[in-house]
Design a protein around this nucleic acid. Sequence first.
RNA 1: CGGAGUGUAGCGCAGCUUGGUAGCGCACCUGGUUUGGGACCAGGUGGUCGUAGGUUCAAAUCCUAUCACUCCGACCA
Length: 569
Amino acid sequence: MRTSLFPLSTLKETPTEAEIISHQLMLRAGMIRRLASGLYTWTPLGLRVLRKVEAVVREEMDAIGALEMLMPAIQPAELWQESGRWQKYGPELLRVKDRHSREFCVGPTHEEVITDYTRRELKSYRQLPLCYYQVQTKFRDEIRPRFGVMRAREFIMKDAYSFHADVESLKATYQAMFDAYCRIFTRLGLKFRAVEADTGSIGGNGSHEFHVLADSGEDAIAYATHGDYAANVEMAPTYPASQPRPAPSAPMTRIATPEAKTIEEVAHFLNLPAHRVLKTLLVRGRSAPAVAVVLRGDHELNDIKAAKHPLIADPFELIPPAEALALTGANVGSIGPLGLNIPVIVDFAAADCADFVCGANEEGWHLTQVNWDRDVPLGETADLRNAIAGDPAPNGMGTLAIARGIEVGHVFQLGTTYSAALHCEFLDEQGKPATAIMGCYGIGVSRIVAAAIEQNHDANGIVWPVPLAPFAIAIVPINGHRAPAVQAEAERLEAELTRLGFSVLLDDRGLRPGVAFADMELIGIPLRIVISERGLAAGEYETRLRWESENQNIAASNLLAWVQSQLVE
RNA sequence: CGGAGUGUAGCGCAGCUUGGUAGCGCACCUGGUUUGGGACCAGGUGGUCGUAGGUUCAAAUCCUAUCACUCCGACCA
């Protein structure tokens, strides 16, 4: 390919709309152009990268026996009403009407469609297991699209769905998918972690998210400093202290704390660290109207954990301030666990505190030097908070660290949530009707492109891992228009490398070398080969690998072998 | 949905306070000189100043409405 036939549209300046580096570089390199909020056109250059990702995904899906198909992007409302998600999904689901006023949605995912398809095809357990996948455009009307294709409204996803007669079969396919995902992200040259994930409102059990590690990631991941334990922060458990609680050292004291309402203000007012101040939150109880939850001041309540507690309402709901005042006689900010006439649940870490500060249930007053059992009975304790860096790791190896991640894949043992709702049934070995057990498995194809850039860039632009690069090799002739020999050699080399299976971009624009170099670096081509009169005379090529900072001169006789050794996996 | 902000040439911006010929850099076009790390000279193309009303002799500028986009937040006391 030549630049005269494959126009590059690089930008020297960074458009203001781009916040994160991958978005900036994708715009500057001319891979994408924005059409509207969360909607992007992929340019010829960008599409080449997208296709590279898709190719790897398809190979690995095919390798585990998943069957590619293609479902409609537009889906009838009836199916979503049948699964109950027409109500549940909310405004993220883009709903449209056709000319007959029939309702449809633009598919954000395809559980309903695949389950409907399968229930029509599936008769017997002998047909199982089944595993289908597609690579397709999805639409989710995000609250706030941002970061370019990282969180776009329209995006490309590989989604796969499996159907099973029993849980063992589901687990086997789940494991095969899990392994395939690891191969995909490894082949794409990404640093990633598979993390245990919350199964959320969909239900079911067994779920892992695959995260590419990057500071700009929108998700917090807790991982063990030793071993391979990793989990979404909301999922990482915390534990009771292994040591006994310290003994009280001073009598409880009531102290005025005017104007000090937040933990930060109280801690500052008393000149104490935040972890010595306990906060008491009122949440909706499952049977009681309210339940008090006590946490260390420096910890955050985890509402997923809270909603799973038998005393706390699911879904989780915080008590509004006015109601809290009525229940405790104090405004939020002065509430404490002493003397409450509602159930009290104390987080493990808060239960381990001695000589702590808490609200006095009287406006503008706090208690200091409070101790469990001596001053207030310690009743129910539980794991109710988000893990933080330094907490003991659940695998018993070292402590937890927190990193940011970009979710690029998700595997999920769905169970029968959809197959039951849509009556996807088959006859089992006994000839009895049984409901299919399902799994679903997604990969954010377009998001991977952005995630890869987050991990692979430098001051000059993108540094593609070889399997993702739009072109493997850039050939830059110097003064080709004045030196016919240089031009001829550039064209000869282009033909030869192309014949060997490399994707080659020959820069025939005749620009000054600095401009050509800068463009090829910005768009991240792994190998640049410079053709010059000087090099021809010396019988060698000047080469530069994108991830290195020095040129290497390679003898002409040795070039092809050297290129193979650098670019072939 | 709440708050803040921005809409002026393809991109980055100035002009608006104090109304009076719409500008700068990059990009693009023509000619010339250049040619190993984003060249230089000269001359050009390109804008209903987001949109619609209003005030005024006169509106990018003041007023009202509206649309789009961006950022922050969406209740952890």
